[in-house]
Amino acid sequence: MGLTSKLGELGIVTVKLEDTVNWARTRAMWPMLFGLACCAIEMMSTQASVYDVSRFGMELMRPSPRQSDLMIVAGRVTRKMAPVLRQLYDQMPDPKWVLSMGDCASCGGVFNNYAIVQGVDEIVPVDVYIAGCPPRPEQLIHGIMTLHERVKQERLEDWV
């Protein structure tokens, strides 16, 4: 992250504003506690003792969309759930990102039928897709890191 330091006597670090903001955003991303189906159980294991996603600044899961900036769509989205999901997305404050976890959320998975939305990108714009049914916690963490990389590339004017 283009960090240049001039370690003079005062120990001043100069850095681009954009980089700092993006860095701060990746270090404290608050995901929304939004479990839909089986993948949500793996999302829970990711937060629990063995995988401990709080190492990546995700200590808190916020049940309220108003307080969160990352939506992890963990599970299959049904046609009945779709409007709810969109409403939750609309309620999240900017900047916000969406991570589609699992085959079902990404493309419908094994359920190619009348009830399931074939990919949550029909409803909300998705930043990172994670394959797997369910993805292992490591895969979810990898997806989160990929998102971090992406956030670090963002320009400030994208969100104003």
């Binding site: 493309c107 009830a115 029909e122 409803i123």
Partner: peptide
């Protein structure tokens, strides 16, 4: 009642299917 099957998108028919696929925008 039909199953409601949607064509699966592979690399060989990506563009074809993509035309009909709805995408959400901001």
């Amino acid at each position: 009642y039909p199953l409601g099957y949607e064509t699966v998108q592979f690399s060989f028919n990506f563009d074809e299917v993509d035309k009909f696929k709805p995408y959400a925008k901001e």
